[in-house]
Amino acid sequence: MEETSKQVRKLSHLARLSLTPEEEGELAGRLEQMVGYLQALSQVEEGAEPDTPCAVPFRPDGVAPSLDRDKLLAQAPLTRDGYVVTPRSVGEGGEA
């Protein structure tokens, strides 16, 4: 754990973060947990089959017809220059 704490201190210094000792301890614990997961993954044999089948089968990719642009724009409440106008979602409020 001490080695991981040293690594967290070094990384926080490089990232110019000031961490409290509690935050350092929490991050060190998380880092050790992640390393444990990676070590467990490295033990999996390449090409190993999963224990359970995939619940949702994959569908094949393919080209399919999309919506007609003019019909779509005709259904929109507000359009401008061939685009659907929506309210702002970031920044100041106000009109679209």
Rank of each mutant, 00 (worst) to 15 (best):
K10Y: 08
K10W: 04
L11Q: 08
L11W: 13
L11T: 09
S12H: 08
S12T: 13
S12N: 01
S12L: 02
H13N: 06
H13W: 02
H13A: 15
H13P: 00
H13K: 11
H13M: 02
L14Y: 06
L14E: 15
L14D: 14
L14V: 03
L14N: 05
L14K: 14
L14I: 08
L14S: 07
L14W: 01
A15C: 11
A15Q: 12
A15H: 08
A15P: 01
A15R: 13
A15I: 01
R16C: 08
R16F: 02
L17Y: 04
S18D: 14
S18E: 15
S18V: 08
S18N: 12
L19D: 03
L19H: 08
L19P: 04
L19E: 08
L19V: 03
L19C: 02
T20F: 01
T20L: 09
T20A: 14
T20V: 02
P21Q: 15
P21H: 09
P21A: 11
P21W: 00
P21E: 15
E22P: 03
E22L: 06
E22D: 09
E22A: 15
E23K: 15
E23V: 07
E23H: 11
E23Y: 01
E23R: 14
E23A: 13
E24H: 06
E24I: 14
E24Y: 05
E24V: 13
E24L: 06
E24W: 06
G25Y: 03
G25H: 07
G25R: 12
E26K: 11
E26Q: 14
E26I: 06
E26C: 01
E26L: 10
L27T: 00
L27K: 11
L27G: 08
L27R: 11
L27E: 02
L27A: 08
A28D: 04
A28T: 13
G29I: 04
G29K: 03
G29M: 05
R30I: 07
R30K: 07
R30Y: 13
L31Y: 11
L31K: 04
L31M: 12
E32S: 14
E32Q: 07
E32C: 01
E32I: 03
Q33T: 03
Q33V: 03
Q33E: 15
M34D: 05
M34K: 10
M34V: 14
M34F: 10
V35W: 07
V35L: 15
V35D: 06
G36E: 09
G36L: 05
G36I: 00
Y37F: 13
Y37T: 03
Y37P: 00
L38W: 10
L38I: 01
L38Y: 13
L38V: 05
L38K: 04
Q39L: 13
Q39T: 09
Q39K: 15
Q39S: 12
A40Q: 12
A40P: 00
A40D: 13
A40V: 02
L41Y: 11
L41E: 10
L41M: 12
L41G: 03
S42A: 14
S42Y: 07
S42Q: 13
S42P: 00
S42F: 09
S42T: 07
